[in-house]
Design a protein around this nucleic acid. Structure first.
Lengths: 342, 342
DNA sequence: ATGAAAGCGCTAACAG
DNA sequence: CTGTTAGCGCTTTCAT
């Protein structure tokens, strides 16, 4: 049984007027007489008339829909970004279509295609970890469809972007570890390819340098998920006696490392301090609570959407590329020691 | 600068053929000669032609898009449901539009409207906590648009639904607490209005009955979020000496309760055992790890989408209402004691 | 083997 | 103040 929703011409027929009269009456066009307007509106309410957004978009060549391409909504950082985007979008009458790439390049390509097929007015994207080829984004760019990158951006394309200052965040939290007495800090980082991971590694190295500590390459592991921590369990434990701190690129990795260390008799933070990145709500729920960096996902989402809205309202004037950098804030909790009084 | 994507008539013009020929060639209609077909296809690839999904939907009266209305994607249970839905949907060529109600009734109404405006072919919904009036869903039902409820359902409307056996889950885990020695179990539950919460409360009560333990109404608190636990902190601590177990309706509530008890010197599970519901990943990250019930969100999502697909492919035959009940599985971890050997 | 025309639901320029 | 018409992009009879 096909559902049939009432259309303007259904109303027109029922009331013995033309479709254009109905259309005008419904949007309070001044030409329509009070009487017919009321009659039409009343009838529309009665039959629960709802405009067909598809027809509208086709006609107006504007869908009032924006597409989001994001790795995985299960991560709090990403879902809070989405909330930020949505809140701004909704307040301006925009809908969002969310597509998850699941960190898969092929799926990301398909997402972009599907979104374009649906004629979204603009795109908000965070690239997948596995994306090295950016031609699908380049073709969006060439089609003149406004696009804003957030968090994991594509530097090869000249678009607006909203990012975290990963370098300074990492430098800040590594300095905190050093300041509280750590000298041999293990860094659990991402694959070298990921830009964000590189920035965090550089920030870590910079903090060592700032404090005249040597960079020991054995003290960095390519390990950025709980699963990966479990796979590196033996290696990490074999190093545990030689380290006094751990800085992980994200909270779930930090927490998993914390667990295997605790299970093996290491006291946190007395023996080993632990720091994460992102301030996932779980950071407050673990024992001991995790020192980390707050990343302001919600505000980043809002900002990304605002940038996109400006592009959308921009008719012809060229806007220069804007880059918004968010400074992460240190959340000192109990997995690191107190700062010693002078 | 308005983006202009290539249309069929652009191709037709460029190649000196009619739009219908292009349309047919692109979908391998047998009438079209090999030569023109190749020519058209090659050109389409060259200009990166992509069909306009809006026009297609309008024409075919089918959008191949389904709408999801869900409280909040930040919760792991909900985002895993979405993943389940998406994986089935994508494999069948459907797109999804996700709308968050943020547990707000008004927003939920707007979500449903927006989805209908976009002419989704069907709806997958989990109602918000604050929804008491179901007329927006009733009107969907009357419009004959297929709809499947999951997790938090609307019993007043006769539709397919996918649910957790909340009663038996609660009974199971409460029995586990009793079996491991608990006699005075505090239940942190939802507001009486929420059906799911009621079922869990009933399951808790049934387990007490099964074991000839009295139901003490003071031992149930309306408290189902971490924030609410903090608000009830004093009350909970004032009861702590008189209880030996806690069963919370969800994991984050259980964990927060666990923290305030631990902070105040209670040992978990030696003094007080704790159990949650849902098996959020965080259950494995806290100390001690949390005993809880696995809820299979991913599979519930898959199942809900499958039910919807059957409705969508159903042309006229009446299908009877189907209800799929998932049995939650006990995940015994370290926040409850071991089952004593006989 | 190809084209012309109508129509999905809606709007807007143009008539009257 | 209201109706007619054309067209957004596409498909699909019906002609030829």
């Amino acid at each position: 049984m096909k559902p049939h929703l009432t259309s303007i011409s259904d109303i027109a027929k029922a009331l013995g007027v033309s479709a254009s009269t109905v259309s005008r009456a419904l949007k309070d066009h001044p030409d329509i007489s009070e009487a017919t307007r009321e009659k039409i509106k009343a009838f529309a309410v009665k039959v629960n008339y709802r405009p067909n957004a598809l027809a509208l978009s086709l006609k107006k060549q504007v869908s009032h829909t924006i597409g989001i391409v994001i790795p995985e909504i299960v991560h709090h950082f990403f879902s809070s970004i989405i909330s930020g985007i949505e809140d701004i979008a909704y307040s301006k009458g925009y809908r969002v279509m969310i597509c998850q790439s699941n960190e898969d390049f092929r799926r990301e390509e398909m997402n972009v295609e599907a979104l374009l097929d649906h004629r979204v007015d603009g795109l908000l994207v965070c690239t997948s970890k596995s994306t090295e080829d950016f031609s699908h984004f380049l073709s969006v760019y060439r089609s003149q469809i406004p696009m804003v990158f957030f968090d994991r951006v594509c530097k090869e394309i000249d678009t607006d972007r909203v990012i975290t200052d990963d370098f300074n965040g990492a430098r800040l939290i590594t300095s905190h570890l050093i300041e509280t007495g750590c000298r041999k800090i293990l860094h659990l980082g991402t694959q070298p390819r990921l830009h964000i991971g590189q920035e965090r590694l550089q920030g870590y190295m910079q903090a060592l340098k700032d404090n005249n500590l040597p960079f020991v390459s054995e003290l960095t592991l390519n390990c950025d998920t709980p699963q990966s921590v479990m796979e590196h369990k033996d290696i990490i434990l074999s190093m545990a006696d030689k380290i006094d701190g751990v800085f992980a690129v994200n909270d779930s990795t930090a927490i998993t490392a914390m667990h295997i260390l605790r299970e093996n008799g290491y006291r946190i933070p007395e023996d080993i301090s632990i720091a994460g990145f992102g301030d996932d709500p779980v950071a407050n729920l673990v024992f001991p609570t995790l020192t980390t960096l707050e990343q302001q996902g919600y505000h980043m989402g809002q900002e990304a959407m605002k940038l996109l809205l400006e592009r959308l309202s921009q008719t012809d004037t060229e806007l220069t590329t804007r880059v918004k950098v968010f400074q992460p804030e240190l959340k000192k909790r109990n997995s690191t020691k107190s700062i010693p009084a002078k």
